[in-house]
Design a protein around this nucleic acid. Structure first.
Lengths: 126, 126
DNA sequence: GGAACCTTGACACACCTTTGGTAAGGTTTG
DNA sequence: CAAACCTTACCAAAGGTGTGTCAAGGTTCC
């Protein structure tokens, strides 16, 4: 018995049932369904719902922001186009080769890793 | 004489002067200013304004979406937290080490590179 | 020195997002 | 079998976004 219905999940995560449906609709957390269509929230979903609230509060984000980040991650072409556009701004070599770009990205990772390590309370334990 | 005023820049890029000010306010394109405060759009800004329109149309994005992507890139801690949250979703090892995560990210790059190469019309020539 | 620009700031409007409520109907369970 | 859930589908209100326009004032240039 480790899956909760939508009202129970709302209770323990601090969201409202209404918002849990909304969060599902924008693609962030899609719980399994029972045979008759009831949403069943398992421990993983409950944890994600809680960390989602922390994430939003911590950086003053909206659900739409996170949904957009998800869309970026799922659409590699879009991610590439947006990243290309953004990276064209700072003063950098006039023509960027794919190798330049990959190196730049990997340096970015080092920076992010640093940020993650400096902030261990968000250890990604699914 | 290679810097245009806001009306001229609007003419050649398809935006309105109003929107150029808006784009500046949300941090996407900040033109230099003349001594008396006039916005001066150089060739780089004009090109970016044109590719920005393409980017939005191509992927059905809003200016706010691109502004959010920019904010992510500028705030490494936020980027890390959002990425961590998103990556906790797909079924992956229960505890993720920093090394696991970096490897995953680098694989993601390969995917994005592929997408970029498959879509060469957006060659990032600043 | 006046026409034609530019600046910031304000008001406004249409649309979308976020969130709540309610209604009509199916499911679970004591 | 009725209470207490669940579902989807609407209507709605508050706030944000994208865009236009106007006002009061500074700048450029013929």
């Amino acid at each position: 018995m480790d899956a909760l219905t939508i009202h129970e999940a709302a209770e323990t995560t601090g969201w409202t049932p209404r918002m849990l449906r909304y969060i599902e609709r924008i693609g962030l957390i899609e719980p399994a369904r029972s045979g008759s269509g009831y949403r069943m929230y398992g421990p993983g979903e409950l944890q994600r719902l809680r960390t989602l609230r922390e994430l939003l509060a911590e950086h003053d984000l909206g659900l739409g922001d996170v949904a957009f980040a998800l869309r970026m991650r799922q659409d590699g072409a879009m991610q590439g186009d947006v990243d290309s556009w953004l990276e064209a701004e700072p003063r950098r070599p006039e023509t960027v080769t794919a190798e330049d770009w990959l190196r730049w990205e990997q340096e970015k990772h080092a920076r992010i890793l640093e940020a993650v390590n400096a902030n261990p309370k968000m250890e990604t334990t699914a």
